[in-house]
Design a protein around this nucleic acid. Structure first.
Lengths: 235, 235
DNA sequence: TAAAGATATTGTATTTTTGACACTTATAAA
DNA sequence: TTTATAAGTGTCAAAAATACAATATCTTTA
């Protein structure tokens, strides 16, 4: 391997070679709660505990590619959002040695094709019930939840949770569940109308035993235009 | 060194040992512009270019401690804010090998003791004039500027730029310079009064050749209380 | 086929917040 | 005492946020 030198131009020592990983928080939303996918930790130090999905990053791999690779075990990640959240670098965060880790999260689309087969070592949990994860993963999850809540209000990531066409009630429910708040139906709809970022598809729901709702699509193109002109988004 | 195993319990290979650095963006504000401290890059690949301050993180060092160590060359960092911004992990971002780097920024207090002696290899630049930095530092700086602007509006980081006691005009000027906007004096003051986070010290400016302004302090304690109760801050 | 059940859709009145705008005041210097 | 300089202050109109309830449309069931 080629030699790396530090800023004072001395050859890099072993002191400066360490392991680097990505930890991926896979969120999903099922109309009643925000869920996170966890895996059973097989390290003796964390026997019986669950952890986030993660893996070491190889020297020839971009960290974002590593995150996509980890996500890719569970879904066709290309369709989903992927956000870097924070990098955790305490010396003792990993019991087997120095591992710095960057956390990413992604959102699973509701109503589309489901996960690739997951074995009994994997399980979905409601985020509000999660506690006692291995490593510093409680902290990582907490930061990711904070970030997703902030982003949900200030960017259009929520639409990644929903199918391409959705009703206004679906959208409102998503906000209520993820943010854990109650919203007024009329005020919510007025706000979205003023944002002017939804396309009325002209279609309505099928096979529901009540008045069918109109289906909308998010207008990503118009959003990007507004975003580039510095127009603020807030729900 | 102890052996690290990856998630499939095979011994870790050299493929998973790499170098990790921190890059620090040191901002300062001098009443007329937002400035950033840069250092001349002494690598032949970037001859004549400037770069951010950074260094490799050693295996026994927390990444935040490494950032403080880098900052500490220039100031008594303990008093200053330190924010992690983003981690840059492209395979080819460093010409001498694989180096993943986490970016931090800090804000220098205006009007307090100045920098430790900096040599001719260091220089302050107005952020709006900076271009053509070494490595991917243009990108890193851009991300830090975006973050600082966002944080300035949504958290009380601006006060880290100011001396403990400041006038409302100082504060307004800070917002105008860093955000590159114009603010109405009366509306700005009304907003701050409603936030109810400033303490009137009872003191006024000394030795100014005009009507002396009142001096205020930021009420960090009250801010923390409000913040914990989920009350939103926005200027 | 009529009634019941379920969810969708819509408007108004009140309060709060924002944005635009100009004069008076306090101090130092001339 | 006059002048220069920045500090400090209030109102009106528009926009946004909040609180609140009746009607419409579809399916299911009696």
């Amino acid at each position: 391997m080629e030699e790396i030198k530090n800023s004072t131009w001395k050859p890099i020592s072993l002191e400066h070679k360490l392991a680097f990983s990505v930890d991926c928080v896979i969120f999903a939303y099922d109309e009643t709660s925000l869920k996170v996918l966890l895996i059973k930790c097989n390290m003796p130090q964390f026997k019986g505990q669950w952890s986030l999905m993660g893996d070491l990053v190889s020297v020839q791999e971009d960290i974002e590619d590593a995150a996509k690779r980890v996500m890719g075990k569970y879904t066709s990640y290309a369709h989903y959002s992927l956000e870097q959240v924070y990098t955790f670098g305490s010396v003792n965060r990993h019991p087997l040695g120095r591992v710095i880790s960057t956390a990413y999260y992604t959102l699973f689309k509701f109503g589309e094709e489901s996960l690739r087969q997951i074995d009994s070592d994997h399980q979905w949990f409601e985020v509000k019930d999660v506690k006692g994860l291995a490593f510093d993963h409680d902290l990582i999850l907490e930061e990711c939840i904070n970030k997703i809540r902030k982003s949900l209000r200030q960017s259009p990531i929520g639409f990644s949770f929903l199918p391409e066409k959705f009703t206004l009630s679906h959208l409102q429910n998503l906000y209520e569940v993820v943010l854990d708040i109650q919203l007024d139906k009329r005020n919510f709809r007025r706000k979205l109308k003023k944002l002017d970022l939804l396309i009325d598809t002209g279609e309505t729901q099928r096979e529901v035993s009540h008045r069918p709702a109109k289906l909308y699509q998010f207008n990503f193109k118009k959003y990007r235009q507004k975003h580039l002109s510095g127009i603020h988004f807030e729900i």
